[in-house]
Simulated assay, not measured.
Amino acid sequence: MGSMEMENLHDSYKYSGFWIRMVATLIDSILMMFITMPLLYSIYGASYFDSSAVFRGVPDLLISYVFPISVTILFWVYKSATPGKMAMKLKVVDAKTGNPPSIQQSIIRYVGYFIAFIPLFLGVIWIAWDRKKQGWHDKMAGTLVVRAQNNVVEDVDFSEA
C-alpha cells in the first residue's frame, strides 16, 4: 500500500472504543442465537436447553462451535466485519496496513478471545485503556477495530504497529 493510500486511511478512520464494540458483539451474539437455537431445537428438542451436558453429539459440535467460528472468521476475512460490526460501521483491519485481516490473523484473533476472557475479562476490558483501543486478541493478531472518522475521537496510525 502506497504512502498516499496509508495517509488516506489515517484520515478516514479512528480507533473504536470498548462500548461500541460491546454493542456490536451483542448484536452478533443475538443473531447467532437466532440461527443456532432453532437448529438445535429442531434436532434435539426442548430437552437440549435443559441439559447440563457440554457436548450432545456431532450436530451440536457443528452448530454450536464449528459454525460460529467459521462464520466469524469468514466475515472478518471477506467483509472486515461481522454483522454487528457492520451495523455499527466498524471494521477489523490489519494494524500495519489497514487491509482486511488475513485468515491467519483472524484465527489468532478468535483464539485470542479465549485468552483475553480468562483473567476476569481483563483482556477485553483492556480496550477501554489502550491507546489504540486494542484488546489482547487484537494485539496477538496484529489487528485494529476502526470506525469512520466522523464517528469517534482518536486518530489511527497504521505505521506504528
Rank of each mutant, 00 (worst) to 15 (best):
S12A: 06
D28Y: 01
F158N: 06
I20D: 08
I73A: 08
P83C: 06
D11R: 12
A81W: 04
K89M: 11
W126A: 01
L62D: 01
H10I: 09
I108E: 04
S64Q: 12
D11H: 13
I108V: 15
F34D: 05
I107T: 07
V71F: 15
D130C: 01
A116H: 02
D155M: 04
F121R: 00
I27D: 08
S64E: 14
V77Q: 04
V92T: 15
S159T: 15
M37L: 12
L90S: 03
K89H: 12
F18R: 00
D50I: 04
V58N: 06
V66G: 04
V77L: 05
N150C: 06
T143H: 10
G84P: 10
K85G: 03
K14E: 15
N150K: 12
Q105E: 10
Y48D: 03
V54D: 08
S51W: 10
I103A: 05
M32H: 01
Y110H: 09
V146K: 00
V93I: 07
F121E: 09
A161F: 13
A24E: 12
I108A: 01
S3G: 02
V152D: 08
Q149R: 07
G84S: 10
I35E: 02
L120V: 15
D94S: 04
L122E: 01
V124P: 01
F117D: 02
I43A: 10
K91G: 05
G135P: 10
W76T: 01
N99Q: 08
A87D: 11
V145A: 02
P100C: 02
M1A: 12
R21F: 14
A46H: 09
Y113L: 10
S52A: 07
A148W: 05
V66E: 00
F158I: 09
S42H: 09
N150M: 07
A161D: 12
F114A: 07
T25R: 05
Q105T: 12
G45V: 04
I43S: 07
A141F: 13
H137I: 07
F117C: 05
F67K: 03
E5I: 15
N150H: 14
F117M: 06
A148N: 11
I108G: 03
G17N: 08
E5W: 12
L90E: 09
D157N: 14
M88V: 08
Y48A: 00
S159F: 09
Y41V: 02
I43E: 09
A128S: 11
T97W: 14
I103F: 15
Y13P: 01
F67W: 15
Y78V: 03
K79R: 13
L9V: 07
D155H: 08
A81T: 03
Y78W: 15
Y113A: 00
A87L: 11
T143F: 11
G123H: 03
S102Q: 07
S29R: 00
L61A: 09
L90G: 05
S52E: 13
S106T: 06
P101T: 10
V156R: 06
P100V: 07
R56K: 10
A161N: 11
V146G: 00
A95P: 02
V153A: 10
K79N: 09
D157Q: 08
D50S: 13
G84Y: 10
M88H: 05
K89Y: 09
M1R: 07
L9C: 06
D94Y: 05
G2D: 15
G98Y: 11
G2N: 11
V152Q: 04
D138A: 10
S12F: 09
K79C: 14
V146W: 08
I43F: 14
A161C: 04
R56Q: 13
